[in-house]
Nucleic acid binder design. Structure first.
Length: 890
RNA sequence: GGGCGGUUAGCUCAGUGGUUAGAGCGCUCGCCUCACACGCGAGAGGUCCGAGGUUCAAAUCCUCGAUCGCCCACCA
């Protein structure tokens, strides 16, 4: 029956597309996402990691939003003023590269357009993509406060950038230095170490002969970069290397160029590597640069900024690195100076954004002095003011922060926050909050602004306070800062999280957030990282269209835990969609039964429950609420979600709804409707953080069918989160209904085993071991209907069983099922004997434990007690079974 | 070279010392049973990577090893 009639306006299957937009607009219109500042309450604040403006959202963003929004919704329901602040990042280099690629399609470079027009071009992209991202975040259901939306280039955040730069400059923590940095020849900008990705690559290890000047022979050096030899300024050997120590102080002649190279001794040279002799190229290798510093060597540069060789390359000027490499090697070979070429594999650095090979080049760049900033950032984590979840990343963070090096912040790009430094011919550097019009030293009006922009992570690093108004002393900043949880991928722990920590401590004297929650990567079904080049990326919105936003979010938080990567596959999405549908249909059942029903007034605040089944489901609900609370507080979202999922499906739907059907038809039994409604309504609250749309929609329909109650919330999103009511815990009801369920299951089991037709009604007997038949009497109609039997609750069986009976020993008693035809007694005995054997093994194990004095004396009382109960229960069942076997003649 | 993580059912994964270790999907058998076939019922399926150890008790903690993966690091 794929398309039966809709009941009470609720279609047979949940249709996310029909409700999501309407629900979201409703939330926005009512202003639920905008918190009210209430000084008597502690707020809960999450700043959304700003997606790059020029990108589409990917699954990582969807995961981020799923996790953040579930925390945010949970806290909002806990009654905390909750701010979830959205924004976007101008993403300097990433955006510039994207737009450069776009204009490259028209055969243009940014230089053809010029700075101004190029930036205009980027802005039109930003406008388009910014809106697109906004809509995507909405479709995922993020309950973020759009009235506080920020962009890194907005005046506010820009002023935070300017203020931070000026302050750090004045404190001497920002300086300009000339040293070796990573240079991307394609982007033509400097990069920080973090922006360089290393990848193993095969290349040759070239062994080159450097003749000794005294004519006594030659040294062989090994290099992977033969073309850089053109600007070698020394040869280095390890002073402890017996092969060469006598050469220190002598000189060698640089092949091709003919320059005289001093032979120096330096510890940095590895004894075991290559030939033990190192060509020193301070201009193009960080190690060599340091050797050069130690020995006062000249630093020569052979590369232009576009990666071609410059005038220092002589006849190779103008060639690319790879052309020059080939040609230099060929010349060396011709001159008989190429000793040999070995196969070699080593890590080559590439630009994170454009994948071009990065060249170490000496250049003038602005740096932040990190040591003074890193120390308080280390302390904040060490002393626990900031907690990192999962905890293991604490060590990763500390290790990085403790070994941090100065951060190059200038980028030779056009898109970003321009460096607020002006230069005057008189040599003055002007750094101020206001743009200067003349040099304060010499009065010259002819001053020029630094053409470079700041690393995009400079502004991102200020995000927690710049979005709240800093450097202005705003009410938002005062109230919402420090923020509560920073939730993001562990891949940007250094890029972003670490920098927010030291910037916030520097600017605000305050930690930026109390907790860092790091999630893993979303991988494809084969476990491969999603990337555009591999073509295995999945668009979140396509999935939202197919399965609904709830299902996508639910799938992303299913079976995941902090810090661990996850694979997303169709099965997970389908299972999640099915769960939303299950909820929908349970609600459909309840709502349809509520129509025209009376006696519902107590649904909201249940009083004393007269029916055991009611006490059972309410007890279970509250236990689940307790578990969910525990897991939510422990950032175990996957576990919290699983608890509610299992409760709704396996207890409420599978058993309580089925039980209620019998009672709904009965005239004598108390109506299950108030409890049916109550438990569903509370479950909707528990589920709302995980399935915001379907729960809100169902909630509205449910409440429409119920009588108003005094403190009924306006919408589920602002309904108080249900905390466990321990007075509703009911061990006895749980055990008793558990026995009823066991009885039904075991009849079904026998029916299936003996292949009884579905509509054959059998007769059965149940001898309750402790004589407390009242439990089963109360549920008799349910048991008879569910198990399709006529059940007699007569006393214990006596004498031999009928030859047509199958028997089973349950916890609560002995079940006898009359199959109506002769049972194969041998098989039946076999089945019972094997069950008996299992029970005996179990009982022996329990017995061994309890006979162990160490266990009894050292284990907690409750554990011992539990084991005793188990043993006694197991012994009862063994007695039952033994008795049965006797009577059956086994 | 350091550091971290994974290894649990056929597959993907939960499991934060204490039930006879769980879920989804897949598989087998039976069902369109008046909320739901995006479903219902019943099953099969596990030396929790290996070896030691700590503990009354280990998938869980420790040590060593295997294996896959990630991060960091200036062996050219």
């Amino acid at each position: 029956m794929a398309d039966g009639p809709a009941r009470n306006g609720m279609p047979r299957a949940y249709e996310p597309g029909a409700v999501e937009r309407r629900i979201y607009e409703g939330w926005v219109d009512k202003g639920y996402f905008t918190p009210e500042i209430d000084r008597s309450k502690t707020p809960f604040t999450v700043i959304m990691p700003p997606p790059n403006v020029t990108g589409e959202l990917h699954m990582g963003h969807a995961l981020t939003i799923a996790v953040e929004d579930l925390m945010v919704r949970w806290h909002r329901m806990l009654g905390e003023p909750t701010l979830y602040l959205p924004g976007t990042d101008h993403a300097g280099i990433a955006t510039q590269v994207v737009v450069e690629r776009q204009i490259a399609a028209d055969g243009m470079t940014r230089h053809d357009l010029g700075r101004e027009r190029f930036i205009e071009r980027i802005w039109s992209w930003v406008d388009e993509y910014g809106d697109r991202i906004h809509r995507q975040i909405e479709r995922l259901g993020a309950s973020c406060d759009w009235s506080r939306r920020r962009f890194t280039l907005d005046p506010g955040p820009a002023s935070a950038v300017r203020t931070t730069f000026v302050n750090l400059y004045r404190k001497g923590l920002i300086y300009k230095g000339s040293r070796i940095t990573n240079w991307c020849p394609r982007c033509r900008t400097a990069l920080s170490d973090l922006e360089v990705r290393h990848r193993e690559q095969k290349s040759g290890l070239y062994h080159i002969r450097y003749p000794l000047e005294d004519g006594s022979g030659h040294l062989v050096i090994a290099t992977t970069r033969p073309e850089t030899m053109l600007v070698d300024t020394a040869v280095a050997v390890n002073p402890d290397d017996e092969r060469y120590s006598n050469l220190i102080g002598k000189s060698a002649t640089l092949p091709i160029v003919g320059r005289s190279l001093p032979i120096v001794g330096d510890e940095a040279v590895e004894l075991g590597f290559g030939t033990g002799a190192l060509k020193v190229t301070p201009g193009h290798d960080p190690t060599d640069f340091e050797i050069g510093q130690r020995h006062g060597l000249e630093t020569l540069n052979v590369l232009n900024l576009d990666g071609t060789l410059n005038e220092n390359a002589g006849r190779y000027q103008g060639q690319t690195v790879s052309e020059a490499r080939e040609n230099v090697v060929a010349q060396l070979d011709e001159e008989g100076l190429l000793d040999k070429v070995e196969d070699f594999s080593h890590a080559v650095g590439r630009c994170e954004r454009c994948d071009e090979v990065v060249e170490p080049i000496v250049s003038d760049q602005w740096y932040i002095k990190m040591k003074p900033l890193a120390e308080p950032a280390v302390d904040a984590v060490v002393d626990g003011r900031i907690a990192i979840v999962p905890e293991r990343f604490t060590k990763v963070y500390l290790n990085w922060m403790e070994n941090i090096r100065d951060w190059p912040i200038s980028r030779q790009l056009w898109w970003g926050h321009r460096i607020p430094v002006w230069y005057c011919e008189c040599g003055a550097q002007i750094v101020d909050m206001e743009d200067p019009t003349e040099c304060p030293k010499c009065g010259n009006a002819d001053i020029e602004r630094d053409p470079d922009v700041l690393d995009t992570w400079f502004s991102s690093g200020l995000w927690t306070h710049s979005t709240l108004g800093w450097p202005e002393q705003t009410e938002d900043l005062d109230y919402f800062h420090p923020t509560s949880v920073m939730e993001t991928g562990h891949d940007i722990l250094f890029f972003w999280v670490a920098r927010m920590i030291f910037f916030s401590l520097e600017n605000m004297g305050e930690i930026p957030f109390h907790t860092v929650y790091l999630h893993g990567l979303v991988r494809d079904p084969e476990g491969v990282k999603m990337s555009k080049t591999r073509g295995n990326v999945v668009e979140p919105l396509e999935l939202v269209d197919m399965y609904g936003a709830d299902a996508v979010r639910f799938a992303l938080t299913t079976g995941t835990s902090a810090g661990n990567d996850m694979r997303l596959n169709e099965q997970k999405l389908e299972a999640s969609r099915n769960f939303a549908n299950k909820l929908w249909n349970a609600a459909r059942f309840v709502v349809s039964n509520l129509q025209d029903a009376s006696g519902l007034d107590g649904w909201d605040d249940l009083g004393v429950l007269s029916h055991r089944e009611d006490r059972w489901i309410v007890s279970r609900l509250n236990r689940v609420a307790a578990q969910v609370d525990k897991h939510m507080r422990g950032y175990q979202f996957g576990e919290a979600q699983r608890e509610v999922h299992d409760f709704l499906w396996n207890e409420y739907c599978d058993w309580y709804i089925e039980m209620s059907k019998i009672r709904l038809r009965s005239e004598s039994e108390p109506s299950p409707l108030p409890v049916l409604a109550h438990v569903l309504e509370k479950t909707l609250r528990l589920l709302h953080p995980f399935l915001p749309f379907v729960t809100e929609e169902v909630w509205t329909r449910l409440l429409e069918a119920l009588p108003d109650s005094p403190d009924q919330p306006d919408a589920l999103i602002v309904a108080p989160y249900p905390l466990a009511d321990e007075s509703r815990f009911d061990d006895r009801a749980e055990a008793e209904v558990g026995s009823v369920i066991e009885l039904v299951r075991s009849v079904r089991n026998l029916r299936a085993e003996f292949r009884v037709q579905n509509n054959d009604r059998l007769s059965a007997g149940f001898a309750v071991s402790d004589g407390a038949t009242v439990v089963f009497e109360e549920s008799l109609p349910f048991i008879q209907s569910e198990a399709r039997i006529d059940l007699s609750l007569s006393g214990p069986l006596t004498g031999a069983a009928k030859s047509s009976e199958a028997v089973q020993a349950l916890r609560a008693g002995t079940l006898t099922l009359d199959l109506g035809e002769t049972v194969d007694l041998d098989n039946e005995l076999e089945r019972l004997r094997s069950e008996l054997a299992d029970l005996q093994k179990y009982s022996q194990r329990l017995n061994r434990n309890l006979a162990n004095d160490n266990f009894v004396s050292r284990a907690p009382e409750e554990v011992v007690e539990r084991e005793r109960e188990r043993l006694s229960g197991t012994r009862d069942r063994i007695a039952l079974l033994t008795d049965l076997l006797d009577r059956l003649g086994g």
